[in-house]
């Protein structure tokens, strides 16, 4: 789990602010045509305004819902599958080549196919996002399960617990930090794929659709403003999940960092 402390956070903020100031100054000094590419201050202002714009909010809500569904579905599929493959070695050996074949296929390349498969755009978007988000959760879960100490499992077995109890009480909590990392990665991947599928396949609602419409109206300020909000959402989700991991899995960090 990446650890963010106050000093590094402050430095990051200073760096970002510095870059924005430089860009703003360059724009004002006439480095480019600000009619075409708006100033930093204009974009930031638009981004703020978008948060109160009903049209944008409808799109944002739609994207958010798609993303949440996609992530939930990803977890519902990949965690049980990963637990199974992690615990049952022959199953993992049998499925491994298939995983290695499917995993590198870019989800974006599947969009045209998926469009033909689903008449409902939301289903299409969810499918594309799940396809991409599945792998980090699946692979992390498998590794997490493998990482569970055999002695931890034997201890419970020696007290007469059966395989199902051992899976639920030792393997699942033991693998949980890895699973959480997989979910955090999947959350970011799913954001990218939801917006990408909206951009490529179009539709009625969605931040990607909003950006496409802004582009057709030559509104670069709105395009960049909306894009910045997507990025900020990604940072927010990541920060919340990291904080959750640090809180829930203090034991894991204590162990891996050797703090006793």
């Amino acid at each position: 789990m990446p650890k963010v402390n106050g000093a590094s956070l402050l430095r990051g903020l200073i760096g970002t602010a510095g870059l924005l100031v430089v860009l703003e100054a360059a724009g004002r000094l006439g480095a480019w045509d600000t009619e075409r590419l708006p100033l930093v201050s204009t974009v930031l202002l638009r981004a703020g305004e978008l948060l109160a714009d009903p049209e944008f909010l409808v799109s944002a809500r739609s994207s958010l819902t798609t993303w949440a569904f996609a992530l939930a579905l990803t977890i519902a599929i990949a965690v049980p599958a990963g637990l199974l493959l992690g615990m049952v070695r022959p199953a993992e050996v049998a499925v491994r080549p298939l995983i290695e074949f499917l995993r590198p296929i870019p989800s974006v390349a599947l969009i045209p196919l998926v469009i033909l498969m689903f008449s409902e755009t939301t289903h299409m978007r969810i499918t594309v996002a799940v396809y991409a988000a599945l792998w980090p959760v699946l692979v992390n879960t498998i590794y997490g399960v493998r990482d569970v100490d055999p002695l931890a499992k034997e201890t419970l077995r020696s007290f007469g617990f059966g395989p199902a109890s051992v899976a639920y009480r030792v393997v699942l909590p033991g693998a949980a930090p890895f699973i959480a990392t997989g979910i955090r990665l999947a959350a970011s991947v799913a954001i990218v794929l939801v917006v990408t599928s909206e951009l490529i396949a179009g539709g009625i609602e969605g931040v990607g659709v909003y950006i496409t419409i802004a582009a057709s109206g030559n509104r670069l300020d709105l395009m960049i403003g909306a894009t910045i909000l997507v990025g900020l959402f990604g940072i927010l989700v990541n920060a919340v999940l990291v904080a959750g991991e640090n809180r829930l899995f203090r034991w894991h960090r204590a162990r891996t960092e050797g703090v006793t």
């Binding site: 100490d149 002695l151 931890a152 034997e154 201890t155 077995r157 020696s158 007290f159 007469g160 617990f161 030792v170 909590p173 033991g174 949980a176 899995f249 034991w251 894991h252 204590a254 162990r255």
Partner: peptide, 21 residues
Amino acid sequence: DGSPENLAVVFQDYSRSLYPW
């Protein structure tokens, strides 16, 4: 046959046999 009832084991490696969570 299997792990008997009424039996407990204390292993050498406490750090691995206790659950850190």
